[in-house]
Design a binder for these strands. Structure first.
Lengths: 238, 238
DNA sequence: GTAATAGTGTCTTTTAGACAGTATCGA
DNA sequence: TCGATACTGTCTAAAAGACACTATTAC
């Protein structure tokens, strides 16, 4: 396999797509941009940040993904999570068979460089659920749909969504975010118990005043733990 | 992005790799084969089933993956699960930058066409843990390592490993398999309770005699349920 | 004081964990 | 009858779930 000279004309186009998520105003928003009217295909369509994977410019697809993210969202080297690679001639119907590796990124609102236009692109942050009603370029509807599904599922098992919050956050902020992601109410008392016993959060010596009420304790993520958050009970947890 | 004429020489090589797993003699085995001494690269190395993704031969990478699996393991169109796409020049160091999309497959031992040589390849089924000690071609060590890790993790959350068992199986067979995958003993009584309450298994009217003892009840998988198996308790399960 | 949100305590229900006990077969 | 493995019951410990209660602030 992988013979350079034999196969150069039979190679697919390879691209990366990034789904940049942010938690803002109580909902998850995604960054999209409008393709220029000079584009070869999908002129003026809305689109997720993407990039051709050109081996002269990039060694790995993660580099290409980071480049796309920087170009459109103004964020450098955030955590990106590969969730699926699509392939087929349907992705770019007027051209050749395409391979599209997709990543999503959990961004902190405070770290995004906001710009209506950047590198010449018109970008928008929109509620994911609204974007899913639109017709996007390429296969970006299925890309966004799967990315959102995986993001929501990750809230059930991992601490990843904590990356949406500021470095210091309150347990209530985490609870409200988690309730949004899993679409169910969570009992406050239980949630606090679990979190304290799990050891995933470290109490800081700071408090936050959010109104005329008792100040809330600020926590940071315990970086030493990772992976699964909620204990399963298939076996004794020991 | 994706401009055909501009980028044809800058396209990476794209290949698929399949990790065929089977549950046999109480352990998970993987199929590997020996590359021919006429290969351009990695002559005589052991290797996982793989295939160049040539757009003249295949429309999607899943087709290429199925072809590789058929060629080496003699199984047609089993369930394949994409778990990661690797990229970089390190994958095939003497040639150009490569993109390698990887799948694993959960095969039933009874459905595998066993052959020491098939389509001219010498194939072997070996305990995964032993294969991981060897030096495989390309990046197949990291491919196998991640595939095995994902397979083991799937036993904690999904019913996927049931696909290793025959269509009709006993709860004890499932328990022993699960104990192997999660590397922990499971209480028999609890396991039965959970399974019965979860509704993932349907009782058949057949029993199996496995020795001088009470016959065991045979079950089949309830295909209507899918996804997660063990209930989490973040919220009331209702 | 009141309103508002942060955080705690306590009781009931559900589930997990350990393990003894019963069932059904071959020999 | 005995040995072996399949399967069930029962008791205790732990966790979940519901919700009342206290804490701290602005006004």
């Amino acid at each position: 396999m992988f013979s350079e000279k034999d196969y150069s004309d039979a190679r697919p186009n390879v691209g990366v797509t990034v789904v940049p998520f942010v938690y803002d105003e109580g909902v998850i928003k995604v960054l999209i941009y409008k393709r220029s009217s000079g584009s070869e295909v999908f002129k003026d369509f809305l689109c997720l940040p993407n990039r051709f994977f050109n081996i002269n410019d990039f060694n790995t697809m993660e580099e290409a993904a980071n480049h796309a993210l920087w170009e459109k969202a103004g964020v450098s080297f955030p955590a990106i999570i590969q969730f699926h690679t699509f392939s087929g001639s349907y992705i770019d119907p007027t051209r050749i068979t395409t391979v599209n590796s997709c990543y999503y990124s959990i961004l902190r609102k405070s770290e995004i460089v906001y710009h209506d236009t950047f590198c010449g692109f018109d970008t928008f942050w929109m509620d994911v659920r609204d974007v899913l009603k639109l017709e996007l370029a390429f296969n970006h509807n299925e890309v966004l749909e799967l990315a959102y599904k995986r993001l929501l599922a990750s809230a059930e098992y991992t601490t990843d969504p904590i990356l949406f919050l500021d470095k210091k956050f309150t347990i209530n902020e985490l609870r409200v975010l988690t309730e949004f992601l899993i679409k169910k109410p969570i009992d406050n008392s239980r949630f606090r118990d679990r979190i304290k016993k799990s050891g995933i959060l470290i109490e800081t010596n700071e408090k936050q005043l959010s109104g005329s009420n008792r100040p809330s304790q600020l926590f940071i993520l315990n970086e030493n733990l990772d992976g699964y958050f909620y204990p399963k009970s298939l076996t004794k947890s020991t």
